Amino acid sequence: MRRHTIRPLAALAATGALALTGCAADDGTAGEGTSPGDGGRTLHAQRVMQLTQVHPQTGMTLLEGPTFDEEGRLLVVDVTAPAGEPKVIRVDLDEETAQPLHTDDRGAYTSAQFSPYDGRLYLTDFAGGAVVSLAPDGGDPHTFFSGDVDGAPMNPDDLAFDPEGNLYLSDSRGMREGEPLGRVVRIDRDGEEATVLADGLAATNGISFDAGYDGLWISELLENRISYLHLDAEGGVASRHTAVHVDGGIAQTDSIAVDADGNLYQALHGRPAMLVYSPHGEHLATVEIPAGHQGLESATNVAIVPGGTTAYLTVSGPAGGYLYSFEALAEGTRQSNGG
């Protein structure tokens, strides 16, 4: 049956319903205004280009995981792309062109990051419960990690790397009999040891290090909250607390990115917008899509140009998958590629 709305992958998995079988000019203007209610600014995003259309085989398209390669090209994943269609797309932002980088017959990839250890591209396979790595040109695919962790399968959603190349994953399991099953999992850079750092989370989604690599910001899709995990010297969790309660309404907390000043960019699933918070929880700004851009339902993730302030937002819905841009509040770093 053709779906006309995008539903969160975690919710689909929890109900057993996860079955994954050109350029456009814009006359909207980027700018700033006043956000009603709390005094935060409104940042108006501008359409850059369309990357995908709804796939007849899956009834949807969902762009995610924007990340920059060493040559400044932007890579994104299409979570619901069927076998044979581009699952990783490489975008030349100067030329406003896009090319397929990778496809296969199995993966439902929800995030992409380059490792600081080996320079390869790492993808989380939500449906397959695995992490896959590719050469930067999209070739040489191999499974980096798969299987149960502490006796339970994973639904890896987003990922972040520490400076040594160890992986930190949001395991986006939902609820069972009212009990949250989500986790944060650390996998060493060789893929040999996996450790659960936190559990009892309601469909863990976004994950990103703070500006100083002292801790992790994580979002819980089924609770609309952002938590902070303070890490110890060995990469374990020293403490954990709820940091921000997100007033999302029908929208839910998706991926997280962090800029050089430590500000959090919280994407929303179910609303084409993004909320920006200071590391102290102050709502600083809301990134909005111009009115009249119909058929776009979710702004899932963002990447800020390393050393610059131009941010690229992945936005999807029945109208297709698009890139939008806006000016971030501070420069981009490694943590500014939404995991």
Rank of each mutant, 00 (worst) to 15 (best):
S170P: 12
M49N: 03
L63Y: 05
H55N: 12
V237C: 11
A108H: 07
G107I: 03
L329A: 05
G33I: 13
G249R: 07
F114W: 14
R7K: 12
L231Q: 06
A251S: 15
A108T: 14
G165I: 01
A194Y: 12
S115T: 04
E234V: 02
I89T: 15
V131E: 00
V305G: 02
E288N: 04
V276H: 00
F126H: 13
K87G: 09
E85W: 07
G262R: 06
A19L: 11
D38H: 13
R183F: 05
G28W: 13
A135Y: 06
D38F: 07
I289A: 00
P153L: 03
P290A: 14
D118K: 06
A257S: 15
R271I: 01
S325K: 10
L275P: 00
E70P: 08
G206R: 01
L9R: 01
D92Y: 02
D188P: 09
D150Y: 02
L275S: 00
V196C: 06
P100M: 07
G165V: 02
D38M: 09
A135K: 10
G332F: 01
D190R: 09
R189H: 14
P306T: 06
E177V: 01
Q252P: 00
G128L: 13
A24Y: 11
A198T: 09
S255H: 11
I207M: 02
L18H: 07
Q113C: 04
F68Q: 07
E297Y: 02
H293Q: 15
D69A: 05
E193F: 04
E64L: 04
D214P: 12
S35K: 05
G339T: 03
M175V: 02
S336C: 06
D190W: 05
E71V: 01
V79H: 09
G174S: 09
G33H: 12
T204C: 14
E177Y: 02
V302P: 07
G320P: 00
V287D: 00
P290W: 10
T286E: 10
R7N: 07
Q113I: 02
P82K: 07
D247E: 12
R334H: 11
T103E: 10
E192C: 02
T300K: 03
E297M: 05
I187D: 00
T80S: 15
H283C: 06
Q53K: 13
Q335P: 10
H293C: 13
L74M: 12
A135G: 11
H293K: 11
H55L: 09
D261M: 06
L62I: 04
P306Q: 08
A194L: 12
G16Q: 14
C23F: 14
Y322N: 12
A17S: 08
A211V: 13
T333L: 03
Q50K: 14
P36G: 03
L51D: 08
L323I: 15
L169M: 10
Y322S: 06
G248W: 01
D261F: 01
E71G: 05
G248V: 10
Q99V: 12
G295S: 08
A81E: 00
Y117A: 15
S298H: 08
S325H: 07
I250M: 08
A203C: 11
V246H: 03
M49H: 05
T67E: 13
I6E: 00
D148F: 10
V305A: 03
A98D: 05
L201G: 05
Q99K: 07
M175S: 06
G147Q: 12
N205P: 03
T124R: 04
Y277H: 11
I187Y: 04
E96L: 12
